[in-house]
């Protein structure tokens, strides 16, 4: 299986665990070398029973993990950059973001996607107060903060205070529109194209599009900061 963890191969493990951080700079959650938990036992038992009952196979589970791993904010960034450079595509995106994403070749399954556009006087912010709905089939799994009680509770009542914590201070002249994904739609923010990017290619523009700016907790990078921003 491509996702094998080598429980007895400690040297191998340590090669990957430099300073306890993953390549994306996040701490690894302890897994193979921590004591087995009740919930891990439940996951193993459920998975084995599902395989034995013929509901799924080990290969199908591994394939699903690979598919989810292949989805990332880069997919959304490509969609945004296309919308910035192709007015007809942008119009299709705002009409039906799911179909526009499929048109670009992204396998987003049955996702119903709505794109909401940031303009000079409007800023959009996405949250799911009821669970953790997120355009996962386009952007991959949500960041941990998106699923926290703090974000889900506060984004609908004090979005400006929340945005300040993300380093985004919007002027009072900007209207904030918060979108609570309460049912069957998922949302993605179409950020405004940064000034001074007239000469950039679509691929260069995509580099400016961060995950957070597609949730609304950030703005795209500007070309000046693009080279150094994490």
């Amino acid at each position: 299986m491509p996702h094998d963890h080598h429980d007895h191969d400690h040297d191998h493990d340590h090669d990957h665990h430099h300073h306890g951080l993953s390549p994306s700079g996040h701490p690894y959650r302890q897994d193979d070398d921590a004591p087995l938990t009740y919930w891990q036992r439940m996951e193993i038992a459920v998975r084995e029973l599902l395989i034995e009952k013929g509901v799924t196979t080990a290969a199908e589970i591994a394939g699903q993990i690979d598919l989810m791993d292949s989805r990332s904010p880069a997919n959304g960034a490509a969609v945004v950059a296309r919308a910035w450079t192709d007015p007809a595509f942008k119009s299709r995106l705002l009409d039906n973001a799911g179909d526009a994403s499929r048109e670009m070749g992204f396998d987003i399954g049955p996702l119903h996607l709505i794109a909401v556009e940031n303009t000079a006087d409007t800023h959009n912010l996405i949250v799911c107060t009821l669970c953790s709905c997120y355009p996962r089939n386009l952007l991959g799994l949500p960041p941990d903060w998106y699923k926290t009680r703090a974000y889900r509770s506060r984004a609908v009542r004090e979005p400006r205070a929340v945005l300040t914590e993300f380093g985004l201070d919007l002027p009072d002249s900007t209207t904030i529109r918060v979108h609570d994904s309460t049912a069957d739609m998922r949302y993605i923010v179409l950020p405004a194209r940064p000034a001074g990017t007239e000469d950039l290619t679509e691929a260069e523009l995509a580099e400016l599009v961060t995950r957070d700016c597609m949730i609304g907790t950030g703005l795209p990078r500007t070309p000046q900061t693009g080279a150094t921003a994490g």
Partner: peptide, 13 residues
Amino acid sequence: VPMEGHDFALWEK
């Protein structure tokens, strides 16, 4: 809002 994140463990995936 707590900003720290983590990479998902195999069992979570």
